[in-house]
């Protein structure tokens, strides 16, 4: 099947096609899923190089499971986000003691404090605040508010109840507000 026709297919149909040996399906899935996986891993790890490694590893696992994929049991993206979550958790555990040094410090330049930040700098501040959250809160907030997932799907990704997800996202957002409140002048809200 040509590439353009494949783009109309669902993730699951493409995965089954790849499981049956269709390389074009892999191309479409790569273009469709890698940006999402990379974004999610980047938010969790705050390290582009590591996020790329995790994305590659997660996609590798997707290719391997394709021939045995059970249709209708789970969404491909849900399965993939779960793999990425686990891979990122492993990496965060390994680097727990060195991670503190990688969190960017707030800029202490007086001029920049007094000026409104550009979007990129605001995103850096958000990322730094996200990194300060406990891992599970960070995962829940990113999945809910950046990846735009519904709570039941997040519950499936994180292997917990919907109520636990709601609690995690609420606490995570509260902590984010508290962290960012301390920097509101730098962020241009003061």
């Amino acid at each position: 099947m040509p590439f353009d026709a494949m783009t109309e297919l669902s993730d699951e149909a493409l995965l089954v096609a790849f499981g049956n040996g269709d390389r074009v399906a892999a191309q479409v899935l790569t273009q469709r899923l890698v940006p999402r996986v990379l974004r999610y891993a980047s938010r969790l790890l705050h390290n582009h190089s590591e996020a790329e490694d995790v994305s590659q590893e997660a996609m590798m696992r997707l290719w391997r499971i394709a021939p045995d994929w059970r249709q209708g049991e789970a969404k491909v993206t849900t399965w993939l986000y779960r793999v990425v979550t686990n891979l990122c958790t492993d990496r965060m555990r390994r680097r727990r003691w060195v991670d503190l040094d990688t969190i960017p410090e707030p800029p202490d330049n007086v001029a920049s404090v007094q000026s409104r930040l550009e979007d990129g700098e605001r995103l850096d501040a958000l990322n730094a605040a996200l990194q300060a959250l406990p891992a599970r809160q960070r995962q829940a907030v990113v999945l809910r508010h950046i990846e735009g997932m519904a709570n039941p799907e997040i519950a499936e990704v994180m292997d917990m109840s919907v109520e636990a997800v709601e609690s995690l996202t609420a606490r995570g957002k509260r902590a984010l507000r508290d962290t960012l409140a301390a920097r509101r002048e730098e962020l241009g809200y003061g």
């Binding site: 790849f18 040996g21 390389r23 892999a26 191309q27 790569t30 273009q31 890698v34 940006p35 999402r36 990379l38 974004r39 980047s42 938010r43 582009h48 996020a51 790329e52 994305s55 590659q56 996609m59 590798m60 290719w63 391997r64 394709a66 979007d119 605001r122 995103l123 958000l126 990322n127 907030v141 508010h145 950046i146 990846e147 735009g148």
Partner: peptide
């Protein structure tokens, strides 16, 4: 958070090539 949702890091060509190479190897 919406700003973050709209600001996706763009995968490098090298990453996309590595992912496709893995798919070829699996096939």
């Amino acid at each position: 958070l919406d700003l973050a949702a709209g600001a996706s890091p763009v995968p490098s060509e090298a990453l996309l090539a590595r992912v496709l190479a893995d798919a070829d190897a699996a096939l």
